[in-house]
Structures are given as C-alpha cells and as structure tokens.
Nucleic acid binder design. Structure first.
Lengths: 130, 130
DNA sequence: AGACGATAGTATCCATTAGATACTTGGGTG
DNA sequence: CACCCAAGTATCTAATGGATACTATCGTCT
C-alpha cells in the first residue's frame, strides 16, 4: 500500500480515526476531559469549571463520553444527590495528546489572533472598495 | 496563583486556549490541516481526500483557516481555474500535536467503539425493562 | 405539617451550524 | 455555438447548540 492509499484510508469517512475527530469535534468534550485530569468531579463542579456550558449540553457531553468508555458516572444515593464523573484509564490516555494541543494553544494563539485581525482589516478594506 | 486559579483561567470562556478548542472543534478543520501535511493541494483534491465534505462547508473551513493564518490560498489565473491551499509555517506547527491525536485514535478507537456497543446494549436492556 | 433549599438534572423554544442539491462564472475546445 | 472543467455560490432543510425555566428527591427549619 503506497502513501496515497494510506492517506486515502485515514481520511475516509469510514476510517476509525474519523471517530476520534468527531469526538474532539464535540466542542465541550475536550474541555471536560482536561478538567477531569486531576480527579473526579461532580456535576455542579464541572459546570463551574467548564464555563459557560448549559446543563443540557453538559449532560449530553457527559453521557456521550460515558458511552465511549472515556469516563465513569457514579451516583451516590444521598440527599442532596451526588453524582461523580471521573476518567477511565482509557480516558486518561487521551490526556497527553490533549495537553500537547493545549500547550500549542498557549504558545501560538496570540499569533493566530493577530493573523485574524489582519485578515479582517484587509477584508474591510476590500469591502470599502479600496 | 494556586492550582484552582490556574485551572479556572485555562477553562475560562475568555482564555485564549479556548480559541484553539473552538478551532479544532470545527470538525473539518483538523482533517484539512492533516491532509495538507505533505504539501499544497487544490480545491478539488481536498474534496476528494477529505470525504465527504460539501463544497460549501469546505469553502467555509478553508476561509476560516486562512483567516487564522494557518494556511494560504493562492489563485492561479488560468483556465480551468486553479486554486492551491497550503499550510503556513504556523499551520505546520500544529501538525505534531494533531498527529499525536491521530496516533491515539489508531491505537484506541477500536476500544472506544467496543465500549460504545456495550453501553448501547445495556441501554437497550434497560429500555426493554430487564 | 408545610415551606425552603440543595443537587442533578429535563423540557421547551429559538438561533446557529451543517448538509444535500442545484446553479453560476469564465474562458478554452470541438 | 454548445460544452467542458474547476471553483466555487445559492437555497432549502435537518441537526446541533444555547438560553431559560421547570422538576424530582428528601432533609431541615419554623
């Protein structure tokens, strides 16, 4: 199999790698995983730390991460009720690559934002007919 | 500043790191960047390799990546027209962390999909009242 | 006993984004 | 003159995200 085929497979709609990019394409999922890096948190704590996410969307994100075996949901039958979310071993293995991405962000996002400003200024100039 | 504050900042809605997660939260953006790793491609080639993306969505993805300074768009005034897209140096620096993620996917997605199947079976059992 | 409070969600409605499909533009070729 | 390609744009609909309000449970307070 040559390089062309390999690339073709990796970016094919059926390729398993696509699953991962769909997974991190869930805007909140990556943030939830990173915020759980240091240990379990309950629902209300997650809401406080991952700002600003509505309960509906957070619930959906947590359920789908649970479904994919990346975190566990534990209900303690007490009042007021308490539910803990914590990374599974599989979920923890996602942390190093996500941390690498976050470090990239810390190093380069300002450059990216500057590029964005310049681009927008150019577009404004074009729109004004200059 | 203690750990709490640090975590609070990183996951704050105003934190620049959030920009990156919004960026890779664009489902197609990561795929486009990786597919451009080996050199420039024209629009129609991108469509073929990143399956299956509609032209509207691909155009939007490319424009926003250009805006963020991650790739350059070059128009060659010939017929039929030709437009090349290629990563900028900044865009290239994103490749190592993205490749790390893709390797994670290649190693772990099958485990994730298995967890997903099991979860769905459990849910079916619950729904059927077992 | 009845109101109140905390936690972990649902429910509802609206806005934004993604996707499918068809159309456009422009010049070269038969 | 009709047709072709490449690189999009336009239009309409489906899916997703977000704001806001509501519910369920049970213990505590008055």
């Amino acid at each position: 199999m040559d390089t062309e085929d390999f690339i073709g497979n990796v970016f094919d709609a059926d390729c398993p790698s696509r699953v991962l990019f769909a997974r991190i394409g869930d805007k909140w999922a990556t943030l939830v995983i990173e915020v759980l890096a240091d240990g379990p948190l309950r629902f209300s704590e997650l809401r406080k730390r991952v700002k600003v996410v509505t309960p509906k969307v957070l619930t959906h994100t947590l359920r789908s991460l649970e479904r994919d075996g990346l975190l566990n949901r534990t209900v303690y039958p007490q009042v007021p009720s308490r539910v803990d979310y914590e990374l599974t071993p599989l979920g923890q293995t996602l942390l190093p690559p996500l941390t690498a991405l976050r470090q990239w962000a810390e190093n380069n996002v300002s450059t990216m934002l500057r590029a964005r400003d310049e681009y927008d200024e150019e577009q404004d100039a074009v729109t004004l007919g200059l």
